[in-house]
């Protein structure tokens, strides 16, 4: 059964290819390791770089990487400046109203708190988050004192210099930092937020979404997606 689905999917790919040999432009932020970041050579690197390249090979598409500021990453997609967002973007209802998502390529990744000591007050203290993230919205709702910074880097710095008691962010982003810096540690329980990470595609671009959907499915099926997830340690596996 699986085989049949795969071959029809492959058929769909080739049909696509014949129709448009266009370059598919992938938009990312380039500032969120291990998901996506710029390596020493200044190239986009990370989990999503490898994933995106592999997806494009499987879908037989020519892909190009574009970095874009997080704040305007969705407006630029719907305006057609690139064709897909692959930037650690959690699938949320809010976003889903404006753009379409492929199926998730990581299971819901819990968020976690990073702090300087074990006994911080997570419900009434000062919690830092990057503005415009689901974590910021969550803290505002919970009633802790939210303090927002423009970049992830500044949120961590705020905890280091005592401006904030803790920072709430994706656990996969915080873990390497906690490992590297003896003063910082993950505290409290994990917070499940969002519905996993998927690629954002324009709503009018159903064809491209189906293409990537099928490619992600094929990577899920043969286990290569799990390998990638483990390699970059971005979340739990499927």
């Amino acid at each position: 059964m699986k085989k049949i689905i795969l071959s029809t999917a492959a058929l769909a790919f080739s049909a696509n290819l014949a129709m448009a040999q266009d370059v598919v432009r992938l938009g990312t932020e380039g500032a969120y390791p291990p998901w996506n970041f710029l390596n020493d050579a200044g190239q986009v690197d990370g989990f999503e770089r490898e994933l995106g390249d592999e997806l494009c090979v499987r879908a037989q598409l020519t892909c190009e990487w574009v970095t874009n500021d997080w704040d305007s990453i969705i407006p630029n997609l719907v305006s057609g400046n690139y064709d897909a967002i692959i930037a650690g973007m959690s699938i949320t209802d809010e976003r889903d109203q404006v753009i379409d998502f492929t199926q998730n390529y990581t299971p819901p990744d819990p968020s976690a708190y990073l702090a300087m000591s074990e006994d911080v007050d997570l419900t009434g203290g000062v919690i830092a988050a990057q503005s415009g993230t689901i974590q910021a919205a969550y803290i505002a709702e919970q009633g802790a004192t939210l303090v927002e910074f423009a970049t992830p880097e500044e949120t961590i710095a705020a905890v280091r210099n005592g401006e904030a008691d803790a920072v709430l962010a994706d656990k996969s982003f915080l873990t390497p930092i906690a490992e590297e810096d003896a003063e910082l540690m993950i505290v409290g329980p994990d917070v499940p937020l969002g519905g996993g990470v998927g690629m954002g595609i324009r709503e009018s671009d159903a064809e491209l979404r189906d293409t990537f959907d099928a490619a992600i499915q094929s990577m899920k099926d043969d286990g290569s997606l799990n390998e990638l997830i483990t390699k970059w340690d971005v979340s739990s596996t499927f």
Partner: peptide, 23 residues
């Protein structure tokens, strides 16, 4: 179309198959 801004492929700026440096 909803929140999407869709023009025909010939009208895209730069054209979809243009190399990166043109973008």
């Amino acid at each position: 179309q909803g929140s999407d801004f869709v023009v025909c492929t010939q009208a895209k700026l730069p054209l979809g198959n243009a190399p990166q440096w043109i973008h």
